[in-house]
Amino acid sequence: MEEITEGCAGLKLSLREDAEVEIKVPLTEEGPVLIGKFCTKRRINLESVARVLKSVWKAKHSFEVSDLGENKVMFLFQTTEDMEQVLLLCPWSFDKYLLILHKLVCGEAVKDIRFDKSPFWIQIHGLPTMCQTKEVGESIGATLGEVVKVDANRKGFCLGNFLRIRVLLDISLPLCRGRKVRLGEHGLK
């Protein structure tokens, strides 16, 4: 093994191979591009995807769909507003398979994107009404994943039957069936 290591240590690029190519990164920091991955091993029909999602997403302007292989798709929007609307309404599914969407940022390569997280709305039931606050939602949500939003009014309350939290969940892990929430110092819920 040492012989191989020593042999490789002396390898160098030739003058022709060592030539550098400089490319310019686009000036815009954000473009209206989403990269999606379908959570299935089955091949997805791209024509069906484009037809169905164009009617479901109801974008004001048209968008292009390109196959990237391995059930990955690029959605190129004409406007950032259409793209943001699609992201806001995540998660999406197609033919019963989860579609994970990722907003492509400047300088990012598709091969480096990890499609292991997706936003979901979580409902927290059984809390006392006055405990249904933004702070409580953030505390409980942080035990599940990254909290994106807590559905609360301007004063920080969610006065309904339950508290809604939008959390970025790691989809490679099984879903949790519940959480223990301590009310005050003594009570367990």
Rank of each mutant, 00 (worst) to 15 (best):
S48Y: 05
I44E: 04
G31M: 13
L27C: 06
V25P: 01
P26H: 09
T40L: 03
P26S: 06
V21S: 09
L46K: 12
C39S: 05
A19K: 06
L53R: 11
K37F: 03
D18T: 01
V21C: 12
R51Q: 06
P32G: 04
R16N: 04
A50V: 04
S48T: 06
L15S: 04
R16E: 04
E29Q: 11
G31T: 15
F38R: 03
C39I: 15
I23N: 05
K41T: 09
T40F: 01
T40S: 03
L34K: 11
E17H: 00
A50Y: 07
R43W: 04
P32H: 02
R16L: 05
G36T: 09
L15I: 02
V33Y: 13
L15W: 01
S48Q: 12
T28C: 03
V21Q: 13
I35H: 12
E29W: 07
I23W: 04
A50M: 10
L46I: 14
I35M: 12
F38I: 14
F38A: 14
N45L: 11
G31D: 13
L15K: 03
L15C: 03
E17Q: 02
V25D: 05
E47L: 11
R16G: 00
G31R: 15
V49Q: 03
C39F: 04
A50E: 14
L53V: 14
T40K: 02
K37T: 02
E20T: 09
R43H: 07
A50I: 02
N45H: 12
T28F: 03
E22T: 14
V52F: 05
V52C: 06
V52P: 00
K24C: 05
P26A: 05
R43N: 07
E29I: 11
P32N: 07
N45G: 08
E20A: 03
D18L: 01
R42E: 14
R42A: 07
K37G: 01
E20R: 09
A50W: 03
K24T: 10
A50G: 04
K41A: 06
E30L: 15
L27T: 11
V21E: 14
V52K: 12
R42Q: 13
V33N: 11
T28D: 04
V49A: 03
I44V: 15
E17T: 00
C39N: 10
L53A: 02
C39Q: 14
A50K: 15
A50N: 09
L46G: 02
K24R: 15
I35C: 14
T40W: 02
V33F: 09
I35S: 07
L53Q: 15
A50F: 01
E29V: 14
L46W: 09
I35E: 13
P26T: 10
D18M: 00
I35A: 10
R16F: 01
L27W: 05
I44L: 13
G36H: 04
P32R: 04
E47N: 11
F38H: 07
E29S: 09
V49M: 12
L34R: 13
